[in-house]
Nucleic acid binder design. Structure first.
Length: 286
DNA sequence: GCCCAGGTGAAGC
DNA sequence: GCTTCACATGGG
């Protein structure tokens, strides 16, 4: 039966923390809820005592796309059990109860993180919003408020037809040619994002790093946030500082060394552990 | 004005 | 291997 509303029953899920933890950049807070666009669907999400209530503009038959994005069916407690039992990790988990990893569209995730390098999260949001406004399509219902969060994320094919100057006008600076090159490779089939799903972690990582402007960190973000490679462990400036201070307070450790430490220390769901540490140090330790 | 931002790639040792 | 630098742009 098609409906424009559903309640996804889930416990221990902090919707606000999850949508605002730097893994995705387009969700708009509105009073008690969050609005955004997933594929063709405009959605409004609201946290309730029983879970997450979703409302759409058009009737929906099958809600799997939303369950998939929100990852409401995973066993969070089982994942938390695999984290190392040390002080920093315990503090991070205690500080961010219900923080989750989303499962995003690979293209939007890749494009967003190509735009993320040496930008603050607020600025990444601004750039992405401009990009969607100028190259996306309006998806919101008539009644939706004007402003951000009502345009779809532009397809690779659409951006492939843009000029570098048009992209630079979205304030992305030197990242413009990188985004344009990725869009063109994907649009004309030279690079296949879907193929990566079937690859082993290391091969998928190497493939992403073939793209100009995509190094290890951005590749890890895409592997973790879009493809669900739970052992991917993005090391950005925040995580690097945190690992240094929390785990190597005496001697200075090279980035290489920190990466190797992370790969073994945090277990099979290292990426989840990373998200807890990242959100913890950014919001609780400022 | 200065420093930094969910980095990357190239060039220098 | 490691260090340094340029690359746009805006916030604090």
């Amino acid at each position: 039966m098609a409906a424009t509303e559903i309640l996804l029953r889930v416990r221990n899920y902090d919707l606000a923390a999850t949508l605002d933890s730097g893994q995705t950049f387009r969700w708009q807070p509105q009073q008690e809820s969050w609005t955004g666009i997933l594929g063709e669907h405009w959605v409004q999400l609201t946290q309730t005592p029983d879970g997450i209530r979703a409302a759409t503009a058009a009737p929906v038959e099958n809600w799997d796309w939303l369950r998939q994005f929100l990852q409401t069916d995973i066993d969070l407690a089982a994942i938390l059990k695999t984290f190392p039992d040390d002080g920093p990790m315990r503090a991070a988990v205690a500080a961010c109860p219900g923080l989750r990893l989303l499962r995003q569209d690979p293209w939007e995730c890749l494009a967003s993180f190509i735009l993320s390098s040496t930008k603050q999260i607020v600025q990444i949001r601004q750039i992405v919003a401009l990009l969607c406004e100028r190259f996306g399509e309006r998806r919101a219902p008539q009644a939706a408020l004007a402003g951000d969060g009502i345009y779809s994320f532009p397809s690779a094919a659409r951006l492939a037809r843009a000029t570098e100057a048009e992209l630079r006008a979205c304030k992305m600076g030197f990242r413009a040619p990188n985004l344009l090159a990725a869009a063109r490779e994907i649009a004309d089939g030279r690079f296949d994002l879907e193929r990566l799903r079937k690859l082993p972690h290391a091969e998928a990582r190497a493939a992403l790093m073939q793209l100009r402007g995509v190094g290890g960190k951005i590749a890890d973000c895409v592997l973790l946030f879009a493809y669900g490679f739970d052992s991917a462990f993005p090391v950005d400036v925040w995580i690097e500082r945190a690992l240094q201070q929390l785990y190597f307070p005496r001697r200075r450790a090279s980035e290489q060394r920190l990466r190797r430490f992370a790969a073994t220390h945090f277990g099979p769901h290292a990426g989840y552990a990373q998200q807890y540490l990242f959100h913890y140090i950014r919001t609780k330790l400022h």
